[in-house]
Design a protein around this nucleic acid. Structure first.
Length: 202
DNA sequence: CCCTGATTCGC
DNA sequence: GCGAATCAGG
């Protein structure tokens, strides 16, 4: 596979949407997430908050020293050469400008799995789910992995448990059903046939 | 372990 | 330019 204009366009679009490199790779097909990330960097898109990318003061490549080793031993990964030239002279920004508040840049890059302010999935309500499902859910929630938002993946149950306003809040985290956002028990209460709901509803 | 992006460097 | 291997981290 090669980076045709069309594929690059898809890459740009999805990346700007906050899609992950692996998701983009999956969509494109024929490439790995590494390939996607590499391309993103070569396109200068690494900064998702689309900045003009001021490459003015490009840091001179710190030419590797001797390095007698045959197999490269990339150690200098920690100290990133973020060209930071404080300049010998005292910068001393103008007082007026210095006092000015930093322009708060908009975060917004990644789309949260459960966007703040959005309605959460319906919580189990005794008169809306079957007794079996309710029992199953209560049992399962005792064994919830209690994951945090950051720990959720495409294959973990994203059913929220508890009150988000308190510390007693987490996500189920048990293995999710293929293609579903929840585990078997929570799928049972999240997705119900219309007839079932109607019959049970008051 | 699952996942994320960042970086290096042989090709 | 490309991307696997690797690194660093949630």
């Amino acid at each position: 596979m090669s980076w045709t204009d069309e594929r690059v366009e898809t890459l740009k679009r999805m990346w700007s949407e906050g899609q992950s490199a692996s998701a983009i790779a999956k969509e494109l097909g024929g490439v790995t997430r590494n390939a996607v990330i590499g391309k993103v960097h070569r396109l200068g898109l690494s900064n998702r908050t689309e900045e003009p990318a001021e490459a003015a003061a490009a840091p001179a490549a710190p030419a590797s020293a001797p390095a007698p080793d045959k197999k490269a031993v990339r150690k200098p990964a920690a100290a990133a050469p973020r060209a930071e030239t404080p300049a010998p002279e005292a910068p001393a920004p103008k007082p007026a400008e210095a006092a000015a508040p930093q322009p708060a840049f908009t975060p917004v890059p990644r789309r949260p799995i459960v966007p703040a302010g959005q309605p959460l999935p319906p919580q189990p309500s005794a008169n809306e789910i079957s007794p079996e499902a309710l029992a199953s859910v209560r049992e399962v929630e005792k064994r919830a992995r209690k994951l945090t938002l950051m720990e959720l993946t495409e294959r973990t149950c994203k059913w929220p448990i508890g009150d988000p306003a308190t510390e007693k809040f987490w996500f189920c985290g048990l293995p999710s059903q293929a293609g579903k956002p929840y585990c078997e028990a929570h799928v049972g209460v999240a997705f119900q046939p219309m007839s079932s709901r109607r019959d049970r509803r008051r």
